[in-house]
């Protein structure tokens, strides 16, 4: 048994690359409408935080759920991009969309560097290698000049989108964040359901067979690693614009653990699981913030129970009931 076994059975009647199933389309549509009116119901900054983490978890899920690779160092790309985007906005004076783009590219490059080394090992070694490199990046962020050490990069200006539309207000920025994160998640969905995604699944299920079929497995692994790092970076860069801050929290190993938790809780290898998982974890942190270290204990308990009793995650269980992939 492997990580792949917690995947719901694929819908056999239609090829997986043939457009979006109606159910998925309906859920995305409902989600979009809900998110469009959400700032009327909750504090926009909180909603934006949830969306950034949903994209982060979805990017992580691309690697674990579809590539079968457990990275324990995704904070490096998330936090690294957040530093670069914050620096680009504050020091270079770039507009928000360019800062986010620069941050994302930086995360992709970092992913390329770390990924090309990490894919030389498999399984738990892969997890340890990614964690160790992320820790190396953490030390870099702690000591480098441009990151501001313990202080981080503070009061990052939000500026104007394309230099025209000011996004200083939370309400205006909200719709930019909605567009970026929702677009990012749809793009990830497209990757998973493309021929490239099918090859990834083949490698995950049986690597020697994929090699014997002539696929250059390591290239696919590296590509999915870079894509996952880039989208994690997109999420981190966007978050730096929301909070106008880039700090060591985002590159710390506990952040790498949190994104694993979100994905595991929602359902590894599902489309909507990471979104739900991120929503639950961020909401929990928000309401339990006054409880200090108990939040860590609760997260640990969720990890343990999740692994022992609940490996499919919430969306995975629902998907089993409905007998449809979600």
């Amino acid at each position: 048994m492997s990580v792949s076994d917690i995947q719901p059975a694929p819908n056999a009647r239609r090829p997986a690359t043939a457009g979006m199933p109606k159910l998925h389309m309906a859920i995305f549509a409902v989600l979009f409408v809900l998110l469009a009116v959400l700032p009327l119901l909750v504090y926009p900054v909180f909603a934006m935080k949830v969306m950034c983490f949903a994209l982060f978890a979805a990017a992580f899920n691309l690697l674990l759920g579809f590539g079968g690779l457990l990275s324990f160092g995704h904070a490096a790309y998330f936090g690294g991009a957040s530093y670069v985007a914050a620096h680009a906005s504050k020091v270079w004076g770039l507009t928000p969309e360019l800062s986010i783009l620069v941050g994302t590219l930086a995360a992709a490059l970092l992913g390329l560097a770390i990924g090309s080394l990490a894919i030389r090992r498999q399984g738990i070694y892969f997890a340890m290698v990614t964690l160790a490199f992320a820790q190396m990046f953490y030390f870099f962020a702690l000591q480098a000049d441009f990151t501001g050490g313990e202080d981080g990069i503070q009061s990052v200006p939000r500026g104007s989108l394309f230099g025209i539309f000011p996004v200083d207000s939370n309400e205006a920025l909200y719709y930019l964040v909605l567009a970026v994160t929702f677009g990012g998640i749809l793009f990830l969905y497209r990757i998973v359901h493309s021929p490239f995604g099918q090859v990834l699944k083949a490698i995950r299920e049986n690597e020697p067979r994929a090699i014997s079929l002539g696929y250059r497995v390591n290239r696919y692994k590296l590509m999915v690693f870079v894509l996952s790092a880039a989208f994690a970076g997109l999420a981190g860069a966007t978050k730096s614009q929301v909070f106008q801050l880039a700090s060591l929290t985002d590159v710390h190993w506990s952040m790498s653990g949190e994104v694993v938790l979100m994905t595991l809780l929602g359902g590894v290898g599902t489309v909507f699981g990471p979104i739900l998982g991120a929503t639950i974890v961020v909401t929990m942190q928000n309401y339990l913030a006054s409880m200090g270290a108990w939040v860590t204990v609760i997260q640990g308990v969720i990890f343990v129970l999740g692994v022992l009793l609940f490996r499919e995650g919430i969306v995975g269980v629902i998907s089993k009931w409905l007998k449809r992939p979600l």
């Binding site: 048994m1 990580v3 738990i124 270290a293 108990w294 204990v297």
Partner: peptide, 28 residues
Amino acid sequence: RRLYHLDHLYGLLLTFGVALIIQGLFRN
């Protein structure tokens, strides 16, 4: 013991959770 028949990654995730619990309790 319940995880030996599964992918080894689950052992990693479980013990990570245990680490969070122990560290969180002592921090408290």
